[in-house]
Design a protein around this nucleic acid. Structure first.
Lengths: 358, 358
DNA sequence: TTGAAAGCGCTAACAA
DNA sequence: TTGTTAGCGCTTTCAA
């Protein structure tokens, strides 16, 4: 199949190729008659516009780059799902890149985006990333950049994140209201912003409710199902009493829960467990795992909408960057259903999604 | 920041711009001295190659299109994760498109890919798609096309799928060997190929083990957690005796399992339950949900490898298309752990992943 | 309402 | 080893 260009259509119709180009782009100065004729011929010849040529010439592109740590993490694939949907409805295509949490890979991806002359970039920063030179270059080239979930605070870049402090606070407050008093918090050893915020929420909730902050109850480490199990094991081995576990994310919480059940500890009666992220399995396990919902759908939508606004505005880097912070939601399930909590007053407006206990 | 081109570098160094181009592309005819000089200047001026221009001129592109029904389905996001990783390692970028199971959307996506002059397309067909004209056009343009998981048999296109017949057979055989005799199969009302194959595997396994095929035990419908619950309810309401459920996928199986537990039916002692897809929650619920693993990782890898082979071969459409069919694996967990099954002989080589019962 | 012509930034054949 | 030159297929200004 020979490649068909606007020249071929022009020859077919004995008109100039610029008229053909205008007709195909629905230029107002072209008569309806020629437009119709051109479109018909284009279809007959199986013509397809060459976006490479048109983008090269016009300097505009309708491709945007999305950089995520990994599509294997349901949170990210879910947000990408949402962003792609909305950007696609607005005529944009998605160039996808996974950093796999590696700084080098992230840098390479940004380069690819830049070389491909994308119209803008939406990114969630890799765990490993310490410097921000590669992101700064995007700004220097005046290309719209937006962070979601994991942002680099040092850069003046718009972002959509959730309030991790509030998430940590909500989880801890919920446990306190359920009557738990010695609450363990499992957090990350590294100094990732979002986990520090969750920890801060935990500490402040304890203080607000006049509970002591016990260093022995704050466990640092990697996060994984196994680490959750190990934490519970060590707490028992070291004879450290506790009656609840708030883990930085659901898999770790699930590990803790499994280990407790292995030890024949009653959940939620003796020990309550809550996680973070509201992974889909939380609703399916027994007892149902309480968690903090990260507003995945909203985050994708908000990111796409804000980004579209950026693409449309000219004075992109003149005003202060818009930073949208979404409110996390408490999802109370059986793993923390110790008792009636009606006597407590509400601290935040939407405390629960009203999900059924399982 | 002004846009820097090879012309700017050429002016800086008082050499011709084609020398610069050659130097940057590591052309063998250029001396090491100039190469070094050019590279240094390029870096100093913050030069970035324009892929639009180079692809337009050379006629080659290193972008490939990936079309999936939805990234919100963990199976697809997981396969895309794998494909992106390998293609990326081989120097390709990914243009991503979700059909959301819509034929129109799929068609539009293919058009975008074609207009963007992708080097090739990897696709999993939308549920809604009945015709294959849009895929045929890809072939007519001699662009490499590969299907994964959901292929259109009518087209001579290479594909990577799993053996759904064998999956259905394995699941049913496993239940039979565990001593279950009246096995319900929940399948899709629509006539999707892969579900028909699973049903065929179910029927043939029963026949092979001399068990009757009872129409009352084959339930057609939508697939969802709720439908699984509903199936169990109806079976009890209609007084249809059964001692096992094989559902077309894990969420439906989970619904059946939950309803059985609500009815205080003992799983696996009284009724066994097995699903399909090996979703991550299966290992976390209690009792652990037996399932059929779809070889997600292998599928991504196999698809990427086969595709790379296609991209490299010239006589792409001359020989018969390679169709790779992966073997599904039985994952036996607590939901079917009725009793010792050592007295049965093995039908297939790898019967179980040897996963611990939870 | 249409045509002519220039050129986006690069690759690659041909010359030197 | 390097330079000259001609486009890739399109958008867009200027002219008619």
């Amino acid at each position: 199949m020979k490649k068909v260009t606007i020249q071929d259509i022009a020859k077919e119709l004995n008109i100039s190729f610029s008229t053909v180009a205008r007709a195909l782009n629905d230029h107002p100065a072209i008569s309806e008659a020629t437009k119709k004729l051109v479109r018909k011929t284009a279809q007959r010849l199986n013509y397809r516009q060459n976006k490479l040529a048109s983008s090269l010439r016009s300097g505009h592109s309708n491709t945007i780059g999305i950089m995520v740590p990994s599509l294997d993490v349901s949170f990210f694939s879910s947000v990408v799902h949402g962003i792609e949907k909305i950007m696609n409805e607005n005529g944009y295509s998605i160039l996808l890149y996974q950093s796999n949490e590696s700084y080098e890979s992230e840098k390479k991806g940004i380069e690819t985006f830049l070389n491909s002359r994308v119209a803008g970039i939406i990114a969630s920063v890799a765990k490993e990333t310490q410097t921000h030179e590669h992101f700064a270059e995007i700004q220097r080239r005046r290309i719209p950049l937006l962070f979601f979930d994991r942002a680099l605070e040092a850069l003046q870049v718009p972002s959509v994140t959730i309030d991790d402090y509030k998430g940590g606070f909500l989880a801890t407050e919920h446990l306190i209201r359920q009557g738990y008093k010695r609450i363990v918090h499992i957090t990350a050893g590294q100094t990732i912003g979002i986990f520090k915020e969750r920890l801060r929420g935990y500490v402040n909730a304890l203080k607000l409710y006049d509970l002591p902050v016990d260093k022995n109850l704050i466990l640092y480490g990697d996060f994984s199902l196994d680490f959750g199990r190990q934490c519970v094991k060590e707490l028992y081995q070291n004879n450290i009493p506790f009656d609840a576990v708030f883990a930085l994310e659901d898999f770790t919480a699930m590990g803790a829960l499994q280990q407790l059940l292995d030890y024949k500890v009653h959940v939620p009666e003796e020990v309550g467990v809550i996680g973070f992220a509201n992974e889909s399995f939380g609703a399916l396990v027994t007892p149902g795992l309480s968690s903090i919902d990260q507003q995945t759908v909203h985050m994708g939508e908000a990111a796409a909408e804000l980004f579209l606004k950026m693409l449309r505005s000219e004075d992109l880097y003149n005003n202060l960057p818009e930073r949208i912070v979404l409110a996390p939601h408490l999802i109370a399930r059986a793993s923390t259903a110790r008792r009636d909590n009606s006597k407590f007053s509400r601290q935040y407006p939407q405390e629960s999604e009203g999900e059924q206990l399982i």
